Simulated scan of single mutants.
Amino acid sequence: DGTEPHEFEPKASDMMRVKDSKVFIYNGMGMERWAPEMLKSMKDGPVAVVASKGIDPIRLTDKDEIKEHGDFDPHVWLGPEEARKEAKNIADALAAASPENKEYFEKNYEKLDKDLTAMTEEYKKKLSTGHSKELVAGHAAFGYLCRDFGLTQASVEDAFASGEPSPAKLADIIDFCKKHNVKTIFTEDMISPALTETISKEAGAKVETLDTIESGEQDANYVKTMKENLEKIDKGLALN
Rank of each mutant, 00 (worst) to 15 (best):
E110V: 06
I90C: 08
K124G: 03
F105Y: 15
D92M: 12
K85H: 06
A97V: 01
V76A: 15
A96H: 05
N108R: 09
S132E: 01
A95N: 04
K107L: 07
L78F: 07
E82F: 03
D113F: 08
F72S: 10
L78Y: 05
E86N: 12
H131V: 04
W77G: 01
A97S: 11
T129F: 09
Y123R: 03
Y123N: 09
A87V: 06
E110Y: 08
A87K: 10
E121M: 02
T117G: 06
H131I: 01
K126V: 11
G130H: 01
E103H: 07
F105Q: 01
E82L: 04
Y123H: 05
S128G: 00
H69R: 11
N89T: 08
A96K: 14
E100S: 14
G70A: 08
N89C: 10
M119D: 09
S128Y: 00
D71I: 00
P74F: 05
D73M: 09
A96V: 06
K124Y: 03
D113E: 15
A95Y: 02
S98Q: 08
N108I: 03
M119W: 11
H69E: 09
L94K: 04
M119H: 07
I90D: 07
P99S: 04
A83H: 02
Y109R: 05
P99L: 09
A87Q: 11
L94F: 15
A83R: 03
A93S: 04
E110Q: 15
N89V: 11
Y123E: 05
H69Q: 06
L127W: 02
I90M: 06
G70P: 11
A93F: 06
F105E: 01
F72W: 09
S132N: 15
S128M: 00
E82V: 00
P99N: 03
N101Y: 10
E103L: 12
K133V: 00
A91K: 04
A96Q: 12
D113G: 10
D71F: 08
F72V: 10
K133E: 01
E106I: 07
A95M: 01
A118Q: 12
D115Q: 15
W77C: 00
Y109S: 03
N89L: 09
E106D: 15
T120D: 03
G70L: 10
D113P: 05
G130E: 01
L112P: 13
K114I: 15
D113T: 12
H75S: 00
G79V: 00
L116E: 11
S132Y: 00
A87M: 09
K107F: 01
G79K: 04
A95T: 14
E121H: 04
G70M: 09
N108F: 10
L116I: 15
K111I: 14
F105C: 04
D71N: 13
G70V: 06
E86A: 06
N108D: 13
G79P: 02
A93H: 07
E86R: 04
E110S: 15
G130S: 03
K85R: 14
E86H: 04
E82N: 14
I90G: 06
A97R: 01
N89E: 08
D71K: 11
Y123C: 03
G79L: 06
S132T: 04
